[in-house]
Amino acid sequence: MKGDIISVQNLKKSYGKHIVLDGLNFKVERGSIFALLGENGAGKTTTVRILATLIQADSGIATIAGYNTHREPESVRQQISLTGQYASVDELLTGEENLMMMGRLNHLNRDAVKKRTSELLKQFELVNAAKKSVKTYSGGMRRRLDIAISLLVSPQVIFLDEPTTGLDPRSRRNMWNLIQQLSEDGVTIFLTTQYLEEADQLADKIAVIDNGKIVEEGTAEELKRMIGDEKLELTFDDLEVFQLASKLLQAQANEKERSISIQNGSPENLRNLLNTLHEHGIEPSSINFRKPTLDDVFIDITSRKRRGRSVHA
């Protein structure tokens, strides 16, 4: 079954004078992985909290599977499960006991709880740790248990708020695999992240949030095409040389670091650049290739806005 499972229209939320969400709009297709990408404080967690019925928006409409989060929170809660930023597992209980407890609180009967618990322990590779108290778990294990808990009742939408923040690289890889597997089972996944790479690896669609607004939306490919694949960064020792070079190259310059970023990092472009500089007797002190970061997305989007061009290419 296709179609949109989450729809958000003109969502606004402020705390006192501080505007957190400033007219948010987006849609999430059923069965897809949707990533809300943004820096700390951009409004990611607030969005998740509104969708998960924990707080109410000041205005605007959000629906999940057709239910209004404000007017029908009970029905929404039956469709979703939330894994917050801080693992909400009980440290003193074992992994198995955590699952059993949450299973009962999800109003499954005893047999179903037992069955789901052993299935999930297997699926999340926690069988060996099942009888150990969560206190002894690593960060990655905790996060896995946390997500396992949210799958006890086969929700339609899973919210994962920064699922890999604070995990080591290997656990992060494992978490990505896990999220992909979940998605293959047909569940819709709504995740927030600060990492472009993570959104790139996982998401079918990415929405970039900045200052409570969606500033760009599209597939990872579309976003990357927008900001270029790999960047070339030239740095200079001398300020005057730097200024002359930035005039010649007409690119994004950072005066404090005396560096110039160039979007197109192809060998041909590099040769042309160096030739131009050479003709004026300039040599950069260093040349680096850099993968695009979230910063680049923001800089690109905001600089385009300033130049008055449409944000939506």
């Binding site: 998960a52 019925t53 924990l54 809660r77 979703i80 499960s81 939330l82 917050g84 930023q85 801080y86 693992a87 909400s88 597992v89 009980d90 949450m102 609180l105 999800n106 946390d146 808990i149």
Partner: peptide, 9 residues
């Protein structure tokens, strides 16, 4: 996180 989780259930 427990309180939050219970509230979303």
């Amino acid at each position: 996180g427990l309180f939050e989780r219970l509230r979303s259930m």
